[in-house]
Computed example of a mutant assay.
Amino acid sequence: MREIQQQVDHMIIHLGGYWRPLSGLARLLEEVGEVGAALYEGDSAALDEELLDVLVISTCLANQYAIRLDAPKTPDGDVPVHVTYYALVREAGEVARILNAYEGDKKLKATAKPGSLQRHLEGVQQAVFEIARTIGLDIYASIGALVEAKSSRDFGRFDHTPDPITENSVRTYPLRAEGRYWGGIEAKENESFNRYIEREYNLHRFLKIASVEGLDGFVISPPVSGWDLTAAKHELPGVDVQKENFGNGNFLVIRHVN
């Protein structure tokens, strides 16, 4: 699954960037519906394509929250396709419920715990793999060709949308591979920290969901002139703010304090 996540990430960057999460969710639910339509109509070619689309879009959502997906398990025994499809719909609905709380108008539950989004995205993919196995579709053999086709067919089709998983700060942060980090937009030279956080709306998203989603930190590359760490901590009470230096890179790392 790690290889698939990397393939999808490269494709999305090539196409211009990730969709906003709720837009990605709409696409996921659309594709789940199209899987149902293909099953209802008995269209095997369409079913293959739509299953792969569900896999790609659910992987996009996982990448956006820095989730490292586990490979689906091989089920014990055969389950009728329609029953597995019900499981796919159920898991997609749970993903929608969580993302509505993360990104929409629904409030986060006080009992929400880290890991739920990963579990339900993996549930979506488990159902995809089970249906694929039943109909004889080799997901691993097919995904590469799909990514290549989409990279060519959809180039220039979507507008660029900045995303905290694609910012240069997090892509160059040396410890990213050891944790789950988001990155901040590029700071302007001589820009004050309080002005920066006014326009960096993803930091507000991070502070809202970091503890429940299990994100480890928000990484910013300060301007060359730097920021006063005391001022940064004053603007963000209740979180841990640290300067970290690696080689020629300077980073400001914001971590949620439990």
Rank of each mutant, 00 (worst) to 15 (best):
A132T: 01
S152M: 13
A101I: 02
L47P: 15
Y102Q: 08
I67A: 03
E213A: 10
K113R: 14
G217N: 00
L207I: 03
D240W: 09
G16A: 06
V147L: 06
D43Y: 03
Q7R: 12
Q64I: 12
N168A: 13
C60Q: 12
A210G: 06
V219D: 01
I185T: 03
D70A: 14
R180K: 12
V32H: 10
I185M: 13
G214R: 01
I135G: 10
Q125F: 05
A145S: 11
Y201R: 09
S151P: 13
D228M: 05
E103Y: 15
P223C: 04
V8P: 00
K233V: 00
G156N: 04
Q7A: 10
C60A: 10
E130M: 13
I220F: 03
H256Q: 13
H10F: 07
D76N: 08
N100W: 06
L52C: 05
A45F: 12
V128Q: 10
V89W: 12
W19R: 14
I139L: 10
S151F: 08
I12Q: 13
A132I: 00
Y102N: 08
N245I: 15
S192F: 08
E30Y: 14
G136I: 05
K208H: 07
K208V: 01
Y18W: 10
F193C: 00
D53T: 01
I57S: 14
M1I: 12
E49R: 14
R199W: 06
Y85L: 12
Q5E: 07
S44D: 15
G16E: 06
G249N: 04
L51F: 07
K233H: 08
V81W: 00
E213P: 05
E200P: 02
R153C: 11
K243Y: 13
Q242W: 09
L207M: 04
V95H: 02
S225Y: 04
Q6S: 09
A96V: 08
Y140W: 15
A127E: 08
A92G: 08
A92H: 04
G36S: 00
K208C: 04
N202K: 06
D228C: 08
V81Q: 07
I12P: 09
L175H: 06
R2A: 12
L61H: 02
E50D: 00
E30Q: 11
D70E: 13
E200S: 01
F206M: 01
T230Y: 04
A145L: 06
L28N: 01
L29M: 09
S152Q: 15
H234I: 07
L207S: 04
M1N: 09
F129N: 07
G156D: 05
F206V: 02
R20F: 15
M11L: 09
E200W: 03
Y102P: 09
S151M: 11
S44M: 13
D159Y: 11
N63Q: 11
L146P: 02
N100T: 15
D159F: 13
T161I: 13
A37R: 13
G93S: 11
E186C: 05
G115C: 10
K109D: 12
A96C: 11
Q242N: 14
L69H: 02
Y196E: 05
C60Y: 06
